[in-house]
Design a protein around this nucleic acid. Sequence first.
DNA 1: TAAAAATACTCCATAGGTATTTTAT
DNA 2: ATAAAATACCTATGGAGTATTTTTA
Lengths: 299, 299
Amino acid sequence: MLEIRQLQVFLAVWKKRSFSKATQEVNLTQPTISGHIKSLEDTIGTKLFDRSGREIIPTKAGQILYPYAKKIIQLQKQAQKELSLFQKGDQGNLEIGGSNIPGQYILPDIIGKFKKNHEKIKVNLKVSDTHTITEAICIGDIELGIVGASLNYPELKFDKCLDDELVLICSNKSNPISEEEVEIEKLKRLPFVVREAGSGTRVSTEKQLKKALGFSFSSFNIVAEFGSNEAIKQAVKAGIGCAIVSKRSIEDDVRFGRLRIISIKGVKLYREFYLVYHNSRTLSPLAEAFKEFLLKNIT
Amino acid sequence: MLEIRQLQVFLAVWKKRSFSKATQEVNLTQPTISGHIKSLEDTIGTKLFDRSGREIIPTKAGQILYPYAKKIIQLQKQAQKELSLFQKGDQGNLEIGGSNIPGQYILPDIIGKFKKNHEKIKVNLKVSDTHTITEAICIGDIELGIVGASLNYPELKFDKCLDDELVLICSNKSNPISEEEVEIEKLKRLPFVVREAGSGTRVSTEKQLKKALGFSFSSFNIVAEFGSNEAIKQAVKAGIGCAIVSKRSIEDDVRFGRLRIISIKGVKLYREFYLVYHNSRTLSPLAEAFKEFLLKNIT
DNA sequence: TAAAAATACTCCATAGGTATTTTAT
DNA sequence: ATAAAATACCTATGGAGTATTTTTA
């Protein structure tokens, strides 16, 4: 077997055309150099250098070996370098995902900040529903995700990572509510735009409503069901009705006066988001770094 | 340092997705496999495989390492293979040389026979004067040579390898000699075509003549001096005169009746050829094989 | 419970060293 | 005579083994 160390010594001798000078290149003593060359020559079966006194000249066999040795050592170095960069987490691909709210309103911001400290990385953010993201982690397509529900996957870990307030919104122009605060009972009479049945957001919102109010959408006046949070926002802006949505998703719209938040008297609704990852697979250093960053910088 | 053995083990585990099955690939025991992977992981600083019970899954770091490992091992194998082929002497370049007579009339034949046993080799035959060939061996341009004189190079070895008979020739048609055999004294009166002064062949022929006859070209009737043996042959065929040349160089011409050999009464002239090579450099196995072959098959 | 990986340990080969001899200029 | 390579010999690291324990499906 041609050993890495021996090839390194071989290259050092090749470069210096001297056993004793090769010493400096590889930090070994001269007899050790002799030994390595000898054992290389033994495994190969021919002399690699002709040494008659001062003159060290590669033989034909040495000339054949040289390009291979060079390439092997170069690859070995490169592998170590790439691994160590990867290790430090400042290189590579960060493959993560988010369900709709986190994917659209939370992660983009955090990723932006994270990239300032990790300029050379490439980020791949998958945005889909909680179930799809969760599956992607199982398969190994992505390493981390933030999703809206903790599902029952034994091989995954769901860490609660932030609360999101759910708020009642209506259009700023034409809307069925004049006051800043409504009574719980009045909710039942308001026209509502909601997510489609079966969506994760719909399910968790209903759960929160039932917990906080004792009743849910089934008692509401539902005028439309839409397939995305953005669609709902557009509908509300158009005055079709009210909605209960993530506060994070309407911050800009409130600031610019396009939507209005109405308090529900005596009630605050929250929903939780979860950081998901595989519980037995090692996170790449980059993903690990992102996870730490996220937990520190999430608000 | 990434060791070759460790990379081999890494590839085996990668392929089999199992530590215990990797056993078959590399002929090591399972704990040894564990150990190698562990020490690889230690030098790199990350896990290369996630192992949770039965499932062995490469980590990101493992995926980074894989192509490098593959390439390194492949190169290492290839190097060994090429060296071993080279070693057997049935692959590679044979770089040899010959001075004019051996280069033109002796070596081509021997090379032809040698190639029958070594089909894959490439032969590079340099034909030039003795001095140039000798220099080429010193420099390392060629490994072996056959030349017409033993020069005083301390770093070279000149082994006498064959005798060549020098014969008197004349044209078969028009020629100044009618008999099959001439008296020594008659030589002085014959018209002679000779090699140019200073040529190795001229020098050694003169030496042989003086030794055998007591006199040399200076006593002859020289009608022309030509720069090559072939030119001399053409001149003789054209009836310009006689010549003394290597018997080997005119065998075909005699067989086909274009030239005639005349004996010189009571005298046989010989000249010697030498196998030259560097005395401290290792001959490539191919050159070594050729040298052996040549010494056995030369006649 | 069974199969696979990890651990503990023992042993030996060999990489590495120092001291010395040989070789060649 | 000197500088460099080879040799001899010692030490210790670590690679390879066996036996055993731990882990997980």
